[in-house]
Computed example of a mutant assay.
Amino acid sequence: MRSVIKILGIAAGSFIYSIGINYFIVANGLAEGGFVGISILGLYYYKIPLGVSFFILNIPLFLIGWKLFGKRFIFKTILGVVFVSIFSEVTKGWQAPMSDKLLAALYGGVINGIGLGIIFRSGATTGGADIIGRIVNHYFGYSMGRTLFAIDVIVIGVVALIIGKQTAMYSLIALFVASRVIDMVLEGHASSRACLIISDRSQEIADAISQTLERGTTLMEGRGGYTGKNKEILYCVVSREEIGRIRQIVRDIDPAAFLVIYDVHDVLGEGFAPLKATS
Score class of each variant (00 low, 15 high):
I56D: 04
I48P: 02
F15W: 00
G42H: 07
I162V: 11
R201P: 09
V238C: 03
A256E: 14
M169A: 13
Y235R: 15
P60D: 03
G70Q: 01
G29Y: 00
L172V: 12
S191R: 14
E204R: 12
S179F: 06
L30A: 02
T217M: 15
D254V: 08
I198Y: 15
V84A: 08
G37K: 01
F35G: 00
T167L: 14
I10Q: 00
I261V: 11
F140H: 15
N112I: 03
R193S: 13
D207L: 10
S85E: 04
M184S: 13
G145I: 14
F54N: 00
I64E: 02
A190H: 06
T126M: 07
F272Q: 04
A160D: 06
A256W: 13
F73Q: 08
R245T: 13
I173N: 12
I156T: 14
I7W: 05
D266N: 14
C195F: 11
R121N: 13
L234W: 09
D254I: 07
F35A: 00
F140D: 14
E89V: 12
L57G: 03
L213Y: 08
Y45D: 08
F69N: 04
I25A: 01
V264Q: 05
E221Q: 15
T212Q: 11
S39V: 09
E242L: 10
R223F: 08
Y226H: 13
S210M: 15
F272K: 03
A11M: 05
T77M: 00
G65T: 02
G70C: 04
G51E: 04
G29L: 02
F15K: 01
I111K: 07
G113K: 10
V158K: 07
I56T: 03
I163E: 13
V185T: 01
T227F: 09
I56P: 10
A27S: 03
A194G: 12
I10D: 00
L41K: 06
L172G: 11
F55Y: 04
K67C: 06
I197K: 13
Q211R: 15
A257E: 05
G141C: 05
V177F: 07
T167V: 13
G9F: 00
G225E: 10
L275H: 05
Y45L: 08
F24W: 01
R180W: 06
A124Y: 09
G109W: 13
M1R: 08
L79Y: 05
G109R: 11
S199A: 01
Y44P: 06
W66H: 11
K47G: 10
Q211G: 14
P255T: 07
L57C: 01
I132F: 06
L172Y: 12
